[in-house]
Amino acid sequence: MKPKLSLRGIRKRFDDHEVCKGIDLDVAEGEMVCLIGASGSGKSTLLRCMNLLEPIDDGTIWLDGRDISEPGLDPQPVRQEIGIVFQSYNLFPHMTAAENVMLAPRRVRGLSREDLRPRVAQLFSRFGLSDRMEHYPDQLSGGQQQRVAIIRALAMDPQIMLFDEITSALDPELVGEVLDVLRDLRQQGMTMVLATHEMGFARELADKVCFLDAGRILEQGPPEELFASPQEARTKAFLARVL
């Protein structure tokens, strides 16, 4: 099967520090891929490269067989296809939750608030936030803010969702409600790539787990294989520390 998203030889450097040192990765339609690895191993940068928030220095990215990494290509249409959710939520603090969600569909797709209302209300109720639509971000808990951020990305109807350690800034008791959202999306067949420290979650739901170390994918495979019998010494050492 042809992969939905395909990366070959991705390289990215910040000044003297090369963060991605030639990464290959395939993500099939409806698949959930988890990137694991220590902080600074290049997980976040790789995600940001995928929806063109960071221009890559070398390599190619295909979305549905189309080269989206061509220099000079307008990144805006691509970003509408690939949503991203950040560790620190990054909601717009001067807008209500509903306004946060409606801004991009209004400006980019030219829809009116009236057009959007029913669908936005449905998204909020699907993730248990019906009574929080008119709240401002600072009136919401971390878990609620993160769910609004997910709704905001979903409102653009992306084909792929990227999640950059979205539970790392949350209090432990709030992690569950956000992971439930991911479970829900997984059931709907959303194609997803996660950078995560939630090993239990990765083991339970991922189709593929990739272990990143110093800018390379050192090892990848189905979770039961990678967690049960890692081949590389570094993978073993990492898993021994986090499990």
């Binding site: 940001r48 929806n51 928030l53 990144p75 805006q76 249409p77 970003r79 509408q80 949503g83 991203i84 950040f86 620190s88 990054n90 909601l91 717009f92 801004l103 991009a104 400006r107 980019v108 951020a149 905001r152 990305a153 653009m156």
Partner: peptide, 19 residues
């Protein structure tokens, strides 16, 4: 990160500045 969030939704640079 506010700009990142805005452009990641497909907003143009002008809209990111304005809204």
């Amino acid at each position: 990160s506010q700009r990142s969030a805005a452009v990641s939704l497909g907003l143009s640079d002008q809209d990111t500045m304005r809204f």
